[in-house]
Structures are given as structure tokens and as C-alpha cells.
Design a protein around this nucleic acid. Structure first.
Lengths: 221, 221
DNA sequence: GCAACAATGTACGAAATGGTACGTTCAGTC
DNA sequence: GACTGAACGTACCATTTCGTACATTGTTGC
């Protein structure tokens, strides 16, 4: 009661709030992301998200207005996290072949390590990309990816180690497709063909093959 | 449960039934497939399925016991339809290169023309393939696909137009991945990269590129 | 110290939703 | 033409689920 007399000197180390809106918000978002990723938009339950949170259901509606908005924020957060990691790659100082190979392996491994992100994107596609369309944030985040690839490819063509006439966007499509499918269809594929695709040795093989595929596709005849 | 009623003497000419169980059942299944494909297992509503059917909600529970069973039957029906179409391809009389190229194009086009099937598979993967695991039917349907590819590949290696050392299952994985992703991620990809992927001219380009990718992957160095 | 606003807890409401009870009609059999 | 089981319709129930009303507590500026 008498403690708040220390107005004049708030040391940077102080963490003495009982109300901690930012952390509550972040907590809700984290829990919601997991739930939506696991069960989809219609499958996830607000009440269950509330239970798994330190906060209450009331807080979900306080910070996010409704279920769909919460979902949209989960999706945005997921994309943001991905692009942040992607930005750490710097390929400009590598030889084109090396750079491309590294990009492929990075994408493949990244997707494999972030199934929650993949699942959210799958779910968003089930919804026809309707929420993504509302988000200017996500749109703006993704321009950079193509730029990087465009650069690497151009250098490769100039140096003669890549063949001409390819569209960097389609190259990106190819890399994405293989890396994405590896996670998105793991369950059905494994079960149908009785092949433990998630096993580390098989993942390693797939990573090698996927890299190989892309490199074979771009190399001159 | 409801085995096809092969009664001893159903006069072939008679057409005067008011009760028409088989068509009711088929109607329910067709509507359910569309609904599940569009909205997912949790998103689809039994009441809405019932409304869109000639039958009533009671009938859904009469022929299928509950929502999940209905979903499982939808999934099985979808796989059955696919494999039926696939069986029509006969590649054994074609030269290996031609056969492979044809198989790739067939798969690509087939997936593109059957988004409902793709969506059901996506949804099933969201559910960790838990329903597919229950279905002996689907498991048994899929053995053939690999056999066909194994044959073509073996012949190609013998004739020297394919390189050695590839696994037909991984080859199938590659073809599936590219054809599947083309449909499954169309919405997010189109929106993010502002590229009208579904446009016929772009689909044609993708089909060519995908075929090219596979052929480049298998051809000898 | 106190007003004003931000942050939070509790309890509840209305509609949706999966599933069922129960009765009726149809079609083949004797 | 009565009997029987399959096929079907209507009305309903119990629960779940999204969302909100209302009261309470913390925080900050003056």
C-alpha cells in the first residue's frame, strides 16, 4: 500500500507490475496459435484457449475482438516469425551455386522444424486465403524473398552456372512446393506408402534429393 | 453394415419405388463430401448437409452412424474415385520417357481438376491422418500406383534413358508434391506474390515446368 | 488523495449443433 | 390382406460455444 512512493526512481530492472498487458496479450497469442494450428479455425475453441492461458476468456475479447480476429493475428504472427528467421540468411557473398543450395536446404529444414506454421498456412488455404487477403502486414513481409532469389539467379546466369530463361518466382514456387509438401502431407503419405517419412534418416535423404532436384533443374544443359 | 442389396429376384424392369435407399445414401455422401471438403470436419454442419440433401438429418444417422463416420466415408469415396481414374492410364506400351512424361502430366492435371479431393487430403492431414489410418480400404487402393512407376523406371534404366539409383517411391513423392502443392497452396501463393496462378496460361506453364523438372531429375548426367 | 482510464474476474445468455425418441410409411412374404 | 423389417419424417433434448453485462482492481496524472 505504501510502496508506490518510489515514483521518482524507476530502475530499469523493475518488474513489479501486477497488471502486465503485453505479456498477457503475448501469452494469449501464443496459446491461440498452437490451438488454431492444431485444430483449425472452426475446430479451435475459445474456451479452451482461455483455459490454457494465464488470462481469462474475457481478456481474449478485450485484446482481440472476436475469434476470427484472433485467428488473423495468429496467422500474422506466424508469418512474421518466419520472415525474421529468413532475413538472417545472407547469400550475397556466396557463389551462386552455393547460395542456391543453401537457400533450398534452409527452406527445407525451416519448414520441417516449424510444422505449426505449415499447418496454419494449410488451414488458411482451406479458407481460400480469405484472412491473408485482409492482412496488409503479410503482403508486405513477403516481397523480400523473391528479391533475394532474383539476385542469386541473375548472378548464376552471368557466371554461366545457371541456364537462362527461368522465372525466379517459379523457382521459389518449386522450392516451396517440395519443402512444404514434406511437412503438409507427411501423415497421409507415410500411412499410405507405409514409409516412415519423418524418420531422421529419411528426412536427410529427402533434403539431399530436394536440393539435388533444384540444382539439376537450374543447371545448364 | 449396409451391404449392397443383391436380392434374389429384382425384376429388372420395375421402376416404381418410392423408397430408394441407394440413391439416398449416394446423395448424402455426395453432399457430405462437398461440405467436408469445403469446410473441414469441424467446420461442416450436419444440419446444413441435411438441408442440401433430398433426405433428412435422420437419414444421415441412419446410414452413417455419426459425423466422423460420414467424414471417413467421404474420404474413402474420394480416394476411390481418384484411383479409378488412375487405373485408366496404361503406360506399359509407351517408351519410358514418354510414359513418365505422361504420368506427370496426368497427375498434375488430375489434381488441378479435382480440388475437392486435394482439400479432403489437406483436411485429413490436419487431423494427422487419423481417419485414413482406420481405413483398410484406402490403404489397399494405393499399392498399385507405386508398381506402375516402378515398372516404368526399371524399363527406363534398362534402356539407358534414366539414371540409376533412384527410388520409385521418392519419384512418386516428387510428382505428388509438385502436383499437390499447385492446388493446395494456390490461394496463399497467389495472394502473397500477386500472381494469378490459377489462370490457364500459368497453369499450362506450370504443367510444362513440372514435367520438365521431373524429366531433368531422372535423366542421366 | 482522487479522478479517469486501463486491465481483469465472474457469471450468464442466446444460438447453434450433434444426436435421439418416437411414430409413420413402404415393400416384400405368406 | 395381415405381418415384418427396412426406410423415412418430425420434433425434441443436452451440450457446447461464441460472445457480453457488470462489477472490481490496478495504474497514472494532477
Amino acid at each position: 500500500m505504501t510502496a508506490p512512493s518510489t515514483q521518482a526512481s524507476p530502475p530499469p530492472a523493475r518488474r513489479r507490475r501486477k497488471n502486465d498487458p503485453e505479456s498477457v496479450r503475448a501469452d494469449i497469442l501464443a496459446v491461440a496459435s498452437r490451438e488454431f494450428s492444431e485444430k483449425g479455425l472452426s475446430g479451435a475453441r475459445i474456451d479452451e484457449i482461455a483455459e490454457k492461458t494465464r488470462a481469462s476468456k474475457r481478456m481474449i475479447y478485450y485484446y482481440f475482438n472476436d475469434k476470427e480476429t484472433l485467428y488473423l493475428h495468429s496467422l500474422e504472427a506466424a508469418y512474421q516469425k518466419v520472415r525474421l528467421q529468413e532475413a538472417e540468411l545472407d547469400l550475397d557473398h556466396l557463389a551462386p551455386l552455393e547460395a542456391l543450395s543453401r537457400l533450398v536446404r534452409f527452406t527445407f529444414c525451416h519448414h520441417a522444424k516449424n510444422p505449426d506454421f505449415i499447418r496454419l498456412v494449410m488451414i488458411e488455404n482451406i479458407h481460400h486465403g480469405r484472412f491473408l487477403a485482409q492482412s496488409e502486414l503479410i503482403q508486405s513481409l513477403n516481397a523480400g524473398v523473391i528479391d533475394v532469389l532474383t539476385n542469386v539467379y541473375r548472378r548464376g546466369v552471368e557466371e554461366g552456372c545457371f541456364r537462362e530463361g527461368l522465372d525466379p518466382r517459379e523457382l521459389h514456387w518449386l522450392i516451396s512446393a517440395l519443402s512444404f509438401f514434406n511437412v503438409s502431407n507427411q501423415h497421409t503419405f507415410s500411412r499410405i506408402f507405409d514409409w516412415h517419412q519423418a524418420a531422421p534418416e529419411n528426412q536427410q535423404k529427402l533434403e539431399d534429393h530436394v536440393t539435388d532436384m533444384v540444382l539439376r533443374y537450374v543447371r545448364p544443359d
